[in-house]
Simulated scan of single mutants.
Amino acid sequence: MRWLIWLLVLLLVPLLVSTALVLSTRTQHWSLARWDSTGLAPAPAVHPAAVVQVYAARAWGWKGAVAVHCWVAFKREGAAAYERYEVVGWGVAQGAPAIRRNLRPPDGRWAGSEPELLVDLRGAAAAAVIPRLEDAIARYPYPHRYVTWPGPNSNTFVVWLAREVPELHAALPSTAIGKDFLPGGRLLAPAPSGTGFQLSLAGVLGLTLALDEGLELNLLGFVVGIAPKQLAIKLPGLGQLGWSRSGPDLAPDGLG
């Protein structure tokens, strides 16, 4: 019984703290927030080589207390602009596609959220994966479906791309709720980073063990774990806390 109490503490206390921190920063409607470029994506005119990037930003509203929104952006060598792909929920119930293309700038803020750059491939390495990324996007199993919890959602989409294109080595934040939802009801899959394995029951209960992600225990979509490689711990809502980061990934506040 005592272990159950400690488990509830590990889940509930970080969630309460993250909720208080995130909601205390909500000062405006999402439509009034910034969506402009952050400069993380090199300008095509300055950097003609191919680029592939993966981003994460804190979700908007109540979801921002517990989760981030992820997306992918890329450009071919010599291209004048980037292509940005992500999954969003608004409009899907009315028949809109879940996958959206060029909704915002490739490195744009997400309703005021400062994005975190998770993957940054350039040159030949980026050029080699772009055709495979496009193929994986076309084959995404849920192009017209969005479920906030436990998935499929925006993070399920990016993890699908990561598994189909292992060269991305995309280890999503522990707050990327939906990343543990395995398409087709699968129970076992490679970890998103490709450095280990993941067990998952419909995204609500599971275990990830990998070099990049570390050890993650998924309980109802919320992750508790450790990341030895980064000397960090992972807590629901607060995300990863450790020596390799200046603080919890609470700063962004966007819409997802």
Rank of each mutant, 00 (worst) to 15 (best):
Leu255Tyr: 08
Ala189Gly: 03
Leu182Gly: 05
Gly214Phe: 02
Leu187Pro: 03
Gly237Trp: 08
Gln198His: 10
Pro252Gly: 12
Ala210Cys: 13
Arg245Glu: 15
Leu241Pro: 02
Ser193Ile: 08
Ala210Pro: 11
Leu201Val: 12
Gln230Tyr: 14
Asp212Met: 06
Val204Pro: 00
Gln198Glu: 14
Trp243Pro: 00
Pro173Cys: 13
Val223Gly: 06
Ala210Thr: 11
Arg245Trp: 15
Gly225Leu: 10
Lys229Gly: 12
Gln198Met: 15
Pro173Gly: 12
Val223Arg: 10
Ile177Gly: 09
Val224Tyr: 04
Leu161Glu: 05
Thr208Ser: 14
Gly242Asp: 07
Val223Ser: 06
Gly185Thr: 14
Asp212Tyr: 06
Gly237Val: 05
Leu235Ala: 11
Asp253Val: 12
Leu201Asn: 04
Pro173Trp: 10
Glu213Thr: 10
Ala162Asp: 05
Pro190Ile: 08
Leu207Pro: 06
Gln240Cys: 11
Val223Pro: 03
Ser200Arg: 01
Gln198Tyr: 06
Ala170Trp: 06
Ser244Lys: 15
His169Pro: 00
Ala176Gln: 02
Gln230Arg: 15
Asp212Ala: 14
Lys179Ala: 13
Leu205Cys: 07
Glu213Phe: 12
Pro192Val: 07
Gln198Asp: 10
Pro190Arg: 08
Ile177Pro: 00
Asp212Ile: 06
Val159Asn: 03
Ser200Leu: 03
Arg163Phe: 08
Gly203Pro: 00
Pro248Phe: 12
Leu201Cys: 02
Leu238Tyr: 07
Pro192Lys: 04
Thr208Gly: 07
Ala176Asn: 04
Ala202Ser: 13
Ala170His: 07
Leu172Asn: 03
Pro248Gln: 10
Glu216Met: 12
Lys229Phe: 13
Ser244Phe: 15
Ala202Thr: 06
Leu187Tyr: 12
Ala202Gly: 01
Ser193Phe: 06
Leu217Cys: 08
Leu209Pro: 00
Gly247Asp: 13
Leu241Ala: 05
Gly203Arg: 01
Thr195Met: 09
His169Lys: 12
Arg186Ile: 01
Val204His: 00
Gly225Ala: 09
Leu241Lys: 03
Gly185Cys: 14
Asp253Ala: 10
Pro236Ser: 11
Lys179Trp: 01
Asp253Asn: 14
Leu250Ala: 09
Thr175Ala: 14
Lys234Val: 15
Leu207Lys: 03
Gly239Met: 13
Gly239Lys: 04
Gly214Pro: 02
